[in-house]
């Protein structure tokens, strides 16, 4: 926990203070990490989001039809995706795919003395390794969430259009009418917070690996489990703050 807080402080230093002292972070590695963390996760995110959209629409149809209220199906799909399912499920995918990869990569670098070599070359490992991954994640997880939301809404549309008697215009209008911009923004805030949690936990686990290949394995598993728990608890807290308090 002490290491985790120290990592966060030093991350804030390298992002917000160091650039003003002339040590600006390099941009190219950030883009490389964005491709790795974000772009390559897009197909998985698309598949997940589409399945979730379809599932939500089918469940909504089942319940709402018995009330004669199937016109509200787009509302349900849209709100659930924007507020909850989108940010959470896409964070789950990114934890499983990119968080674990980052933890394993940094952990392997730690056990093969690469981190120590960086330090001895007066290259700060947080600046060189963590900052690009952090910024890439902070951009890409919300971006993936927006992308996933679109695909999910398409999933809902597919059910409404082909299995129920909605037309496309009706679905789109109903969906847009139901959602507020705040529904979108709350989801974006959530996914930015999740990005922070996921990448700092993964980097912290990697940088503190001890004891060879076994240590790398344990750290990777631990980072996935911790990130999932932290993310789900934070989600409950944020939902409470955004939608339940006022």
């Amino acid at each position: 926990m002490k290491n985790y807080l120290r990592l966060n402080l030093s991350l804030l230093y390298w992002i917000f203070i160091a650039p003003f002292t002339g040590q600006f972070f390099k941009v190219a590695p950030i883009f490389r990490q964005m491709v790795f963390i974000g772009v390559r996760a897009a197909p998985m995110v698309a598949l997940t989001a589409f399945s979730v959209g379809v599932t939500l629409a089918m469940q909504a149809a089942h319940s709402l039809q018995s009330l004669g209220a199937e016109m509200y199906i787009p509302d349900l799909v849209m709100l659930t995706l924007l507020r909850e399912m989108g940010p959470v499920l896409i964070a789950v995918i990114v934890i499983g795919r990119s968080g674990s990869a980052v933890a394993a990569e940094l952990g392997t670098m730690k056990v093969s003395e690469e981190i120590e070599a960086l330090e001895v070359m007066a290259i700060n490992p947080v600046q060189y390794l963590v900052v690009p991954r952090f910024l890439a994640m902070l951009v890409m997880l919300p971006a993936l969430t927006i992308f996933g939301n679109y695909i999910g809404i398409m999933g809902g549309w597919a059910v409404c259009r082909f299995a129920l008697d909605f037309n496309t215009a009706g679905y789109v209008l109903r969906a847009l009418e139901s959602a507020d911009t705040w529904d979108l923004y709350s989801g974006m805030i959530k996914s930015a917070v999740f990005a922070w949690i996921v990448i700092t936990i993964a980097c912290n686990a990697g940088l503190n690996v001890e004891g060879g290949a076994e240590g790398v394995g344990q750290a990777t598993t631990a980072s996935v489990v911790q990130a999932l728990l932290a993310m789900l608890v934070t989600n409950a807290v944020l939902t409470g703050i955004f939608f339940f308090s006022a």
């Binding site: 003395e113 690469e114 120590e116 070599a117 960086l118 330090e119 001895v120 007066a122």
Partner: peptide
């Protein structure tokens, strides 16, 4: 550290 170099036993290349 900028004034010295270090060769690690395994090389410690990235």
């Amino acid at each position: 550290r900028l004034r010295f170099g270090m060769l690690f036993q395994s090389g410690a290349l990235l």
